[in-house]
Write a protein that binds this DNA or RNA. Structure first.
Length: 441
RNA sequence: UCCCCGAUAGCUCAGUCGGUAGAGCAGCUGACUGUUAAUCAGCGGGUCGCAAGUUCGAGUCUUGCUCGGGGAGCCA
């Protein structure tokens, strides 16, 4: 028994139909749309790999098949047997001349119409919204980006090391965490970053990356925020800030090249202007210091920006649009950056941190740094940031036992995906977005 | 937490000066052999977010609440 074949034919993915012109094939999927014209049905059938038009003439099929299709609603599931032929008039270049059609299940009236819908309705029906052309394209690109990520690190000798989701305390101290009960009277938190554990793992394997979901309980209500999102965090021993920046730009360029190669039709479905993406396939990316960036802001409409502050969304947009590819901003005022960043030996007021800012207003794709590797300095930072030392003893241990210069960064998967796909809201870049006041479905 | 906007049919919206509810899509019935969100004819479909107030009369005006959207802060 297998559901992969029917009447002696094995199902052919719609994406592969062009390789089977003239052959009799089986397509299994869902009815995306039906246009019925008397004795002729035009079925748009989707199977997850693509959409094909199947043409069904009353003269070629059993009357029962013809009537069954006539009664089929949008998103009804079905099996279609037909001959593949090229046709100028068909979207996609090939269509199916149907000889058999069997409805597997007649769908109830489908809530998502062939029309525009509002975000509240679509998010409430996210489980069905995923079936629309645009969402399927984003999901495919997401999978492609994830493959590119793993491929990039594997090829460079980085090992994937998972970090825990439950943590005993804040990784960076400042941001709000989701708190939960952890047996008896103890509390646990959902991790907001795997980085500290990544540092420990890098001291074992040399070059590692952490890849998994992270959680932020900030009450952010913007298109650039989710409460649960996926982050890739490489960490490498014997890396300084320059090594981190080279890794970051080659990493992002690799992802872009991979998607441009593998997902042309998805980008076309998304109506993404690929000429905006193509420059980012090449390295190097421009580098500016924080000081340079502030000067640029002062000269480009933000004369009131105060030196020493972190950049807000409007500032990131201006900086990101200054170049044809993402820009690396490095050497930040230490006060606005995390405790674990190493100070610049040339100017101890600066931290050896780097942000990668995308163009077109997509904001910060990457935040990274060379880490503080000196025991005494890190001890001081913990005090300055008023962090509980007990919680960081193990982290200090990494500076007790064979400390080395090291660094890494974190890349937000959904932000990267939004930028690549030209999607203006992160909620479309994860299958089931978790947002402020929204956790269904 | 703060600022702005919104809530009317299953969905997207219109609803004028305060006078008793409309369209398109979806659904149902029918017509049509090349449709591209097909078209055409017909049918059914309403707690106007909730509560109070003003008024002879409120979808419309006022207040409060709830829910949603966008943005700020914070971050990826």
């Amino acid at each position: 028994m297998t559901e992969q074949s029917f009447e002696g034919l094995t199902a052919t993915p719609i994406r592969r139909l062009a390789d089977h012109v003239g052959e009799r094939v089986l397509v299994q999927g869902w009815l995306y749309n039906l246009r019925s014209k008397g004795k002729l049905h035009f079925l748009q059938v989707r199977d997850g790999t693509g959409i094909v038009q199947a043409v069904m003439s009353v003269a070629d099929v059993a009357e029962a098949d013809f009537e069954a299709v006539k009664a089929a609603t949008q998103e009804s599931s079905l099996r279609v047997i037909g001959t593949v032929k090229t046709d100028e008039r068909a979207p996609g270049g090939v269509e199916l001349t149907v000889s058999r059609a069997v409805i597997v299940h007649v769908a109830e009236p489908y809530p998502i119409a062939k029309k525009e819908h509002g975000p509240d309705f679509l998010l409430g029906n996210r489980h069905l919204w995923l079936r629309s052309k645009r969402q399927m394209a984003i999901l495919r690109v997401r999978d492609s980006v994830i493959r590119a990520i793993r491929e990039f690190f594997h090829d460079r000798g980085f090992h994937c090391v998972d970090s825990p989701m439950f943590t005993p305390s804040a990784c960076e101290g400042t941001t709000t965490l989701f708190q939960l009960d952890y047996f008896d009277d103890s509390k646990a938190y959902l991790t907001q970053s795997g980085q500290l554990y990544g540092e420990a793992s890098a001291m074992a394997l040399g070059k590692i990356y952490v890849f998994g979901p992270v959680f932020r309980a900030e009450k952010s209500k913007t298109r650039r925020h989710l409460t649960e999102f996926w982050m890739v965090e490489p960490e490498a021993a014997f890396y300084d800030l320059d090594d981190v920046m080279v890794l970051a730009e080659e990493f992002v360029a690799h992802i872009v090249r991979h998607v441009l190669r593998e997902n042309r039709s998805d980008l076309a479905d998304l109506e993404r202007d690929v000429t905006k993406l193509e420059p980012a396939a090449g390295t190097p990316y421009p580098r500016v210091t924080y000081d340079d960036a502030v000067r640029y802001l002062h000269e480009h409409g933000h004369a009131d920006f105060r030196y020493g502050d972190d950049f807000g969304a409007p500032h990131e947009t201006v900086l990101g649009d200054a170049h044809d590819r993402p820009v690396l901003v490095h050497r930040w005022p230490a006060e606005v950056k995390a405790f674990y960043m190493k100070r610049d030996p040339a100017n101890p007021k600066l931290a050896l941190g780097v942000d990668m800012i995308a163009s077109e207003g997509y904001g910060e794709l990457i935040g990274g740094a060379q880490r503080e590797d000196d025991f005494g300095e890190l001890e001081k930072r913990l005090v300055e940031h008023e962090l509980p030392r007990e919680a960081f003893e193990w982290f200090l241990d990494l500076r007790r036992y064979g400390s080395v210069p090291h660094g890494g960064f974190g890349l937000g998967l959904e932000r990267t995906l939004a930028w690549i796909c030209g999607v203006d809201h992160l909620r479309e870049c994860i299958p089931f977005p978790r947002m402020l006041y929204r956790i269904y479905p």
